[in-house]
Design a protein around this nucleic acid. Structure first.
Lengths: 188, 188
DNA sequence: AGAGTATATATCGGACGGATATATATCTGA
DNA sequence: TCAGATATATATCCGTCCGATATATACTCT
């Protein structure tokens, strides 16, 4: 999903600054399936404003830099709806999963075993944190009326993160033992 | 993981053409956690060759275009080992998961219900296919001696894909019902 | 004092990938 | 028959993206 559509989507939920939009991609309900950096968010916002799909109003703040709050226009809402419909083709598009960690694990035989073990444990802890974070957000929001879509995608995120975490936890020892066994065979 | 390191990794498993390296990112053991396009693979191979980390030999073929087969040099093997060690910092790096599908689902309230349902079913079918594909590969390879890392990351892939598939299958109906209920409330 | 963190906007330049181009060959459907 | 699709191959273009950097204000910790 291109960053312009992402920004329109976030703004359709309420006015926001460029910085806040980045936070949504980082810590908000989108964080487990979308990423965007300042280098693409700001140009996207500038473009959307130039196209009349959003408007920005500047606001001074005490003790902080000025901020620009963007709001989606009616044309922007229509553009978002169009973009969504355009993408909902009925043909599934593969989710994009990339893992530097798994790349390292694939070539674990080329690395010292203690580094492999340490990396796995760090990754297990990372997923534990991510799960705790999403679950805490879910508890905080339990009293608020939430979009069905929001609840659904959070459920997916929790299921996927749990699967990843649990597999690492349950197979860590066997994997490391196999790595060790492979080294002994090679030494013989 | 940058494409140069990826190419070195694939070539460390055996000589290959640029096209075959792309296939590994598409259909091979890397496909569920790595993606790379021709636009980055070919320049990366050219750069690696210029740096002396790989060598390419040209080969003519009957009925097909000529091909260039690349092999990793000893310096390339050392560079791969260095790259792996450099990345194995002991600090977990978040896996990068991006899903156009989940973005659509988040904003499902803005779309016609039949399109949402159709999109979910297509995605369920997609994950079914992916799972079948990985499982078939695992069966084919059962008699061969495989790297422990290969088996481990395939296990992660199966676990994650299953979690995604199962959650969609188990929650599809409730989600669509909620979307329908939300529309009736809005109409009242 | 400097590094790190947080809230803010903005840009640079390297990395990436989809589309395109070229080449050879085969198959399918209108 | 021709166009489109598919497969095996190499190669490049250019729009998109993002990490680093820059700037600004303020606070905390070593």
């Amino acid at each position: 999903m291109d960053v312009r559509t992402f920004c329109l989507g976030v703004l359709s939920l309420g006015d926001a600054t460029g910085y806040e939009i980045k936070k949504q991609a980082e810590d908000g309900p989108f964080s487990h399936f979308y990423k965007a950096g300042f280098g693409s968010i700001y140009p996207a916002l500038a473009r959307l404003a130039a196209d009349g799909l959003i408007t920005g109003r500047d606001e001074a703040q005490a003790g902080k830099p000025d901020k620009r709050i963007y709001a989606v226009t009616p044309a922007g809402k229509a553009a978002l709806a169009d973009a969504l419909t355009d993408h909902a083709t009925g043909i599934a598009v593969e989710d994009d999963i990339r893992s530097e960690f798994l790349f390292l694990m694939f070539f674990a035989h080329l690395m010292p075993a203690h580094r492999v073990a340490r990396q796995i444990d760090a990754h297990i802890a990372l997923y534990r944190e991510c799960l705790d974070h999403i679950e805490a957000k879910a508890s905080d929001s339990a009293c608020e009326h939430q979009l069905p879509g929001h609840v659904f995608v959070r459920g997916v995120g929790l299921a996927v993160y749990r699967a990843f975490h649990d597999y690492l936890r349950d197979n860590r020892d066997a994997f490391l033992a196999q790595l060790g066994a492979g080294r002994q065979n090679a030494a013989e």
